[in-house]
């Protein structure tokens, strides 16, 4: 284990150090995301003020603001660049320089991903979450629930793993098709909807919701956010955590399978 960390932690460090070179880019991107969040809150404000009841699908307006904020923060926290990195590696032929090193490619990308999450945590999640929590306390007198917070940590760790595997698989698509950009953009749009980042999954028609809750995407944002807000019954909590855990295992197996196929297919571009 110690040897593993010594070999792979440098890849985490490299991502974090490399980040310093592209800080501005990162913040401009985040500014766009935050703008979207503000718009979302205004839309909900309009919906709630024109609605006949104070509660929609079990959410009050304040809870809905909490959902929007926490779902945005969660998707920011688990975000990684693995799919872009891999497709870039393959497209530019730089994958060769990774494969000549005595390291496992998936582990290398995993530790890159930890670097991404480390950056998200330090530069985004903690400051924004801290700001929101203070604001929520001052204006609503809300103190975060410790148990929910700890359960959130468990759930969001599983989310991060699921997203890593999904992005890794989309990255590997670059081995089979030369231009993956379209696929990745489509994936991003679908994820936003199916992960519950835009609206809580309970807002979908019952039939759809019953399908969506079994998909790996629900485990990305919806599950940890609902856990943080304490909106799950004990039964729901166990079910959703279970779905997350099962998907982690399934995706883990799937990535191994796809990698074996991918490496056989590898044709390195650029000489």
């Amino acid at each position: 284990m110690k040897k593993l960390l010594r070999t792979y932690l440098p890849f985490t460090k490299a991502v974090m150090q490399g980040f310093m070179a592209y800080r501005m880019n990162f913040y401009v991107y985040i500014l766009g995301e935050l703008f979207q969040t503000v718009v979302l809150i205004y839309i909900w404000f309009a919906i709630f003020s024109s609605a006949t009841s104070e509660v929609i699908q079990g959410f009050t307006f304040k809870q809905m603001v909490g959902y929007v904020v926490m779902s945005t923060l969660t998707s920011m926290l688990i975000g990684n660049e693995v799919h872009w990195d891999i497709s870039q590696d393959v497209k530019s032929g730089r994958i060769a320089t990774n494969l000549i090193k005595p390291v496992n490619y998936q582990l290398l990308k995993f530790f890159n991903c930890i670097g991404n999450i480390g950056i998200n945590l330090t530069f985004l999640f903690l400051p924004l979450w801290g700001g929101y929590t203070i604001f929520d306390f001052i204006s609503n007198g809300v103190i975060p629930n410790i148990t929910n917070g700890l359960l959130y940590l468990v759930s969001v760790s599983l989310s991060a793993l699921i997203l890593f595997y999904i992005n890794y698989l989309f990255g590997l698509a670059a081995f089979f098709i030369e231009y993956v950009f379209g696929f990745i953009f489509a994936k991003e749009a679908i994820l936003k909807l199916l992960s519950g980042q835009l609206i809580p999954l309970t807002f979908f028609p019952k039939g759809l919701f019953n399908v969506f809750k079994f998909l790996p995407f629900a485990g990305l944002v919806y599950t940890p956010t609902m856990i943080y807000l304490g909106k799950f019954s004990e039964e729901d909590l166990l079910f959703n955590l279970g779905v997350q855990a099962v998907w982690v295992l399934l995706l883990m197996a799937l990535t191994q399978l796809v990698w074996r196929k991918a490496i056989k297919r590898l044709t390195i571009l650029g000489g």
């Binding site: 040897k3 010594r6 070999t7 932690l9 440098p10 890849f11 460090k13 490299a14 150090q17 490399g18 070179a21 592209y22 530019s92 032929g93 730089r94 060769a96 320089t97 000549i100 090193k101 005595p102 390291v103 650029g270 000489g271």
Partner: peptide, 25 residues
């Protein structure tokens, strides 16, 4: 590979060697 570097593009040269030291133990 003369056409491609295996160094870390965004890191100082010294850091790159420190990383390689760990990778190759």
């Amino acid at each position: 590979f003369g056409q491609k570097t295996q160094l870390w593009w965004d890191l100082p040269v010294g850091e790159t060697f420190a990383i390689l030291k760990e990778i190759y133990q």
